[in-house]
Design a protein around this nucleic acid. Structure first.
Lengths: 242, 242
DNA sequence: GCACTTGTGTCGACTACTCGACAGCACCCC
DNA sequence: GGGGTGCTGTCGAGTAGTCGACACAAGTGC
């Protein structure tokens, strides 16, 4: 448990923080604050200086690549298996993406400068940062292939499963419109796929809410990319998903 | 110029090596060897331990994500703006991808352990590695979006331009079959697009060879991703492309 | 000069997804 | 409880790209 900025305490679910040896965690814990992130909040836009690093506990942050025409598509999600802005622990960095809170929840936050100080003193932290960056890169390159080769249904399922791995519970709050943006497809296509998955009994949905009913069933029809990325995280990061 | 392993000398075109201050370069230059890489050679497969790091001078290495069905699609290219296996300077790493020589040419090579030694002693080298990894990540996430949103013609042009930036000359040796794999599309689609570009006078091609006739014309019909990635490299790495 | 291999052109049926439009329903607010 | 807003369902025309098949041409080796 860690102290919250509003006086309450909350469970420490972020895998990176949990994985740090206690003496190393002690270097950053005095600077960590606990925050509730509301859905839809923009944490960074491309070009923004990364001055705060977020360690999600039960929220999901989407890294969105922006196009000139205003389209924004998810390049990678960040949840309890990782952190947002971790590259700035090494050196000051600007964000390459728009980071938005896709699933609301709690995250621990630290200033990039405090994290950098700890980074200079903790080999364990440096190792963790390297591994995380490698896993995130692995996620990105798998998605490059996935978006070129796999159909919308498989990617839809992959997205749901990835999200599910990072939150508590089987209920995801999102509209079809939002998911269409994430996947870079038309909303009508999402409607069609969602209807088909519901007909198969894999999910149930209503206005702005999707319930996962049959996780194994989703895994059966998603593409190999889901498992490949997950294996990548599990290999490089000390602890499995929740 | 650097000495080659066969007694000849060759120009040092790799931007990372050129950017290193001379005292830092001195740390690695005794361990660098010069090699000619033939087209199609597999330098790494997924899971291989990265024991050698390659700094291309005028060749291009494709990082290919492999799928279970044997499909291999390019996630990112590496040329004179970067290096293959640079993450292993920080700590031992396994390759996530298949790395193949797409355009033949020369590269300098160093063992991962020698590079790591230099890395521990050279802040300039550490900075360069970080910047390179960041730029490569930027490339990957742009490609995630590009593959989801842009048509084959735009991606075809983007690929040609990216390749052109990393070699000397306007002639690229590749078959349509090979390019179809790179882009993750059918060969017949590549034939159609190539024919259309040739009809517009932008390229000329014959069996296994593509000549770029009108680079500006290609830039006009490629997607914004080409320029975005190039800007990313130029911002993070010290020197512009050749 | 001939056979062989390998790369390219083309055709046609098919599918996945786009894009615009509009109707209807669910939920929220007052 | 009624009105409005925003989410979802659906339709239809259109397009981009798939997939298999086959003919042909250009180089390669002998």
């Amino acid at each position: 448990m860690i102290d919250s900025n509003d006086g309450t305490a909350a469970p420490l679910k972020n895998r990176l923080l949990v994985a740090l040896p206690s003496e190393d965690f002690g270097l950053i814990s005095p600077h960590l604050t606990h925050h509730e992130l509301e859905k839809g909040r923009h944490l960074y836009d491309p070009g923004d200086q990364i001055d705060l690093v977020y360690f999600p506990h039960d929220c999901v942050i989407s890294l969105m690549t922006l196009m000139e025409n205003g389209a924004a598509i998810e390049s990678a999600p960040v949840g309890r298996e990782g952190a947002l802005g971790l590259m700035s622990a090494v050196a000051p960095r600007q964000s390459l993406v728009r980071a938005i809170v896709q699933a609301p929840g709690f995250a621990s936050r630290i200033s990039a400068s405090a994290l950098h100080d700890a980074w200079t003193r903790s080999p364990a932290l440096r190792d963790l940062v390297d591994r995380h960056n490698e896993a995130l890169f692995g996620h990105a390159i798998q998605s490059v292939a996935c978006n070129a080769l796999h159909g919308v249904e498989a990617r839809f399922c992959r997205w749901l499963l990835s999200c599910r791995d990072r939150i508590d519970g089987d209920t995801i709050n999102l509209t079809q419109e939002f998911l269409a943006d994430m996947l870079g497809v038309q909303r009508t296509t999402v409607t069609a796929v969602a209807g088909s998955l519901q007909a198969k009994g894999l999910i149930r949905y209503r206005r702005g809410v999707v319930d996962i009913l049959d996780r194994a069933g989703l895994e059966a029809i998603t593409c190999e990319c889901y498992a490949a990325v997950r294996r990548g995280y599990e290999r490089l990061l000390p602890l499995p998903f929740g």
